[in-house]
Design a protein around this nucleic acid. Structure first.
Lengths: 339, 339
DNA sequence: CTGAAAGCGCTTACAG
DNA sequence: CTGAAAGCGCTTACAG
């Protein structure tokens, strides 16, 4: 099963390696008849260049690496679509890696992208000691990098971010406006920037309304359905129950719903619920869920645009794009309390 | 920004290239003191081998390519998790590509995987003239291939499949048992094997119950929320409405729900609904949805296992694993009609 | 046990 | 306009 090489083509077409290579790269200095003969031979032998060899020489590829942290979170898959749609418009291909919030996997995938000579890297990073350094190194090595969704403290790397603080503030404020007093937060781990920002927004909204922060109402959990359901169960079985929950993302929202059902609490009567991420099913849930919509697809698009911009001009000034969220009010918080 | 090469290491450590290479590959014939010196130098210079060059020579990688057709469909992302978990156990990395059901993109990604010298390929293929051939070619070229979810007619390629026919049959049968007479199907395009099988299961269940097939109740749509919502709207605004709908996948189910709400039809009173794919939110919807659960995670695991098996023994007999579904009955079909 | 050399499949100055 | 040759960074027989 020997592969056809450029040498085979050259021999079959009766020309030199150089000529074949030139034809393949659209070099115009080749005599038309030779060009045709080469093209015909390439077809006939079904020759496919060996990219390893190509890249060993010239170091380029048309692959964009996209590293996300949870493939099962629709937030990220929507970003993927945004990236892909812009990338395809530029004839780039997108390759995806899922780190699962695991610094080890992240490191492996960053290495792979470097070694595969990706044309660029878009990453929703897990913060970890060496992450920033390795990204900066990658960038210095000629692979443009764009951060998406999570700022790991670099004003040296282009980034596309969401105003998580403001989003969480608006949701919490809404719960307060609905007359809730004991507002809990079930949140992802605050070692992850987005969740830290959401916590801050929540805390600030409470403070601004003169509601003291009760740490018994602050729950941190892995941002997944099962884990957050269990964490919420513990919260709801404890002594002083909350009369409202702000959920840190869409998976946590589902976890909270399941936990509430389990202990027979009715939403919004017994407890209000607002959550981050608006999903296609948010409006179809029982009850429909008030949620903070993020511009996920647009995040992906913008990240790809920034990356391509930097691929074209590696000296471009660093740019951070910040996008706002939108609160979508539905049934899960009850009505507003009239003043 | 010149990269450190093996030559730099050799020079710095005062040995030959060969020796460095041997140390890096754990070749035991190297004197311990030299070995240590080399290792120390590698560390100090932060040397990372160039994979392009490595693979140009020895053709191996530890990357499994995983090609799916819709990154936004939770069915596929759950498969991804299954593949990853098994792959990591074998120290393989997984790289994902999203074809979007587009034969062109699929072709590009298959090529990329071939050119990147992936150690193996798992694919949920879009059926298209050349797909099977290119996969067979890849396999002959030494890259093991496993089909997942979709059989494109190859008993020459290992495959992990779901019994879509039986799943669709059981859901349709259930709707019949609930006393429904005018049962529609809103399905994905039957050019895709899974949807074709589901259609067959639906049709057979009707036939077995002596209910004539009414082609006005057979709707084909892109298997996405918006498209299926629109298609369902047209169905529900037409003359003789259905009294039940069988939805071809989880995204279509959401589309049907939205369409029903739009025309003020109440489920299950005005119309029953059962759908393929059980999702975390299926139980929280309004009403909770009767659905056909697929072993998604297990599909991914088994696919990875088959792939690794073949990587170890390229002469293994072809194997097809068929998995069954499970009908989960909830509120959306109303109660069973007692006989 | 170690080094010099060939070669993987390409691209690209360099001559002509 | 075209070819011969060098070289990308490795690995691996082949000598010693």
């Amino acid at each position: 099963m020997k592969r056809i090489t450029i040498r085979d083509v050259a021999r079959a077409a009766g020309v030199s390696l150089s000529t074949v290579s030139r034809v393949l790269h659209g070099n115009p200095t080749v005599r038309p008849d030779l060009q045709e003969r080469v093209l015909e031979t390439v077809q006939r032998l079904n020759y496919q260049p060996n990219r390893m060899a190509q890249r060993l020489r010239s170091n380029a590829s048309n692959i964009i690496g996209l590293v996300i942290s949870d493939i099962e979170n629709p937030f990220f898959t929507s970003i993927v679509r945004g990236v892909e749609d812009v990338a395809y418009g530029q004839f780039m291909n997108v390759i995806l890696c899922n780190t699962d919030e695991d610094p080890l996997k992240q490191r492996r995938y960053i290495d792979i992208m470097a070694e595969e000579r990706a044309a660029g890297l878009i990453i929703a990073p897990v913060h970890e000691e060496r992450t920033l350094d390795s990204l900066l190194e990658l960038q210095k090595g000629g692979v443009p990098v764009v951060l998406v969704d999570r700022n790991i403290g670099a004003d040296q790397i282009d980034a596309v971010l969401v105003d998580n603080f403001a989003g969480a503030y608006s949701a919490t404020r809404h719960l307060i406006d609905c007359g809730r007093k004991r507002i809990a937060i079930v949140n992802g781990e605050t070692r992850i920037e987005t969740f830290a920002d959401r916590y801050e927004g929540y805390a600030r909204a409470l403070a601004d309304a003169g509601i003291p922060l009760d740490m018994k109402l602050v729950v941190e959990t892995a941002p997944r359905i099962n884990e957050s359901q269990q964490a919420t169960s513990r919260l709801l079985e404890a002594d002083h129950k909350p009369d409202a929950i702000f959920a840190g993302n869409n998976l946590i929202t589902l976890g909270v719903l399941k936990a509430a059902k389990q202990v027979n609490m009715t939403i919004p009567q017994d407890m209000a619920l607002a959550g981050f991420d608006d999903m296609p099913w948010s409006s179809e849930l029982c009850p429909s869920i008030t949620s903070v919509a993020q511009p996920t697809y647009e995040l992906g698009q913008e990240a790809a645009r920034l990356l391509i911009r930097r691929m074209k001009d590696n000296n471009a000034f660093q740019q951070t794009t910040m996008m706002q969220t939108r609160l979508i009010v539905r049934e899960s918080c009850g009505g507003l309390k009239s003043k």
